[in-house]
Design a protein around this nucleic acid. Structure first.
Lengths: 213, 213
DNA sequence: AATTACAAAGTGGTCAGACCACTCATAGTT
DNA sequence: AACTATGAGTGGTCTGACCACTTTGTAATT
């Protein structure tokens, strides 16, 4: 039952047992875990060892601790992990460039998919879209909408992840020139003209990059 | 400089400072970090706090510890990233179609990238490639090579990951017709003729799918 | 002089106890 | 009834002490 305490990493064992405990006691998201002191006694280890395991799980976003209250099972979707990893991973420029390139690949593919899908050429959708360009629009919002419309949820998911890694290169608001490019892009999207749509997409990216520098 | 020790989670701060330290001291993959006791003194915190931060990073696969030796920076870039991404992507189990579509997007992007990169149009590379088609070639191998050549490591990692989910659609050996399409594809790749290259790529995909059904 | 054996120093692993800061329920006061 | 003060419970941190292990330097042996 209890693994030898020597030559093995106890805190990793505790992580394992905590997972088991969460499962056995059927602790739901938001539910409370036993206190550190109680866990230490139940698992027959020191409190500091329990804490090392808990802190690891906290950094992973699996649990959440509130001082004076306790430790709670948290929603797995907390994005802490991605943010943390990004600070470690994206140190060399090459990685950053890869992220941008890959995002661009997904974006272009969404445009191509839409162009090739006859069902998506209904005017009504796109006219409403073009109208929106009158208002203040974030660069990020519109390209995300395009990917959503392309109906590839996996690509959307990956794109989201990459966006977090990328340090939000799309945070800006679109200026007049960018909106002009997008209007032309959308008009070609509407009729399924792939080459022109891609062409205007590339033009938009150029405008965006120029704006940043 | 030193954040107050109350109302903030110190160990998270330590994680941050460790990252900074790794960067400042230019610790390479496999390199050794200062000892826990030294870190505690340098960062002006208790050793247990340092340990909580280190243990967290260890669970993430960012560092590696060896008893009696020390703490070392591990090559998390290669090993952990894909797995971590997979846990996120896995969350809503995706339809196979999305996986295929996304893989195709990455493949096409690799082809387009190669076509647009003048440096990659050296005959020698591609001629050797075409020669290889004489032998027995796995569908998977050749497309992977293409992505590798396109020089986007991130895209390659994602592609690998998706391939695992995809239920191995590429495990087959290329038949005569497929090889023919690839030969034409490679010839166009060689000279940077994007539309034709993509066209032959699509033809190959058709041949592949026909072969499976 | 070269090799071996052993002791010491350094490192991570774990524990116990002690405070602190905070939250919350509740007994006590108004 | 409303408010206040208190104390129990909890996570956050520090200290000091061992233990197990690795490396290294040195003394003893050959």
């Amino acid at each position: 039952m209890i693994p030898n305490n020597n030559s093995r990493k106890m805190f990793l064992e505790i992580v394992k047992q905590l997972r088991q405990l969460i499962q056995d006691e059927n602790i739901a998201v938001g539910g409370k875990l036993p206190s550190e002191r109680e866990l230490a006694e139940r698992l027959q280890v020191g409190r500091s060892t329990v804490r090392e395991a808990l802190r690891s799980l906290e950094l992973l976003g699996i649990i959440e601790t509130r001082r004076g209250e306790g430790t709670f099972l948290s929603d797995f979707r907390k994005h802490q992990l991605v943010e943390l990893l990004s600070t470690f991973i994206l140190q060399d420029a090459k990685s950053k460039k890869d992220v941008h390139t890959t995002m661009q690949a997904l974006e272009q593919d969404a445009i191509r998919t839409i162009c090739m899908t006859q069902l998506l050429h209904k005017q009504s959708i796109w006219d409403a879209f073009i109208d929106k360009l009158q208002e203040e629009v974030l660069q990020e919002d519109i390209i995300r909408e395009i990917i959503i419309i392309s109906n590839n949820r996996l690509a959307l998911k990956i794109w989201f992840l990459l966006k977090q890694f990328a340090g939000e290169p799309y945070r800006g608001i679109m200026n007049v020139e960018e909106k002009k490019a997008w209007k032309l892009l959308l008009n070609n999207l509407k009729v399924g003209n792939e080459p022109q749509a891609i062409s205007y997409y590339n033009e938009w990216k150029l405008l965006m990059n120029r704006g940043e520098n």
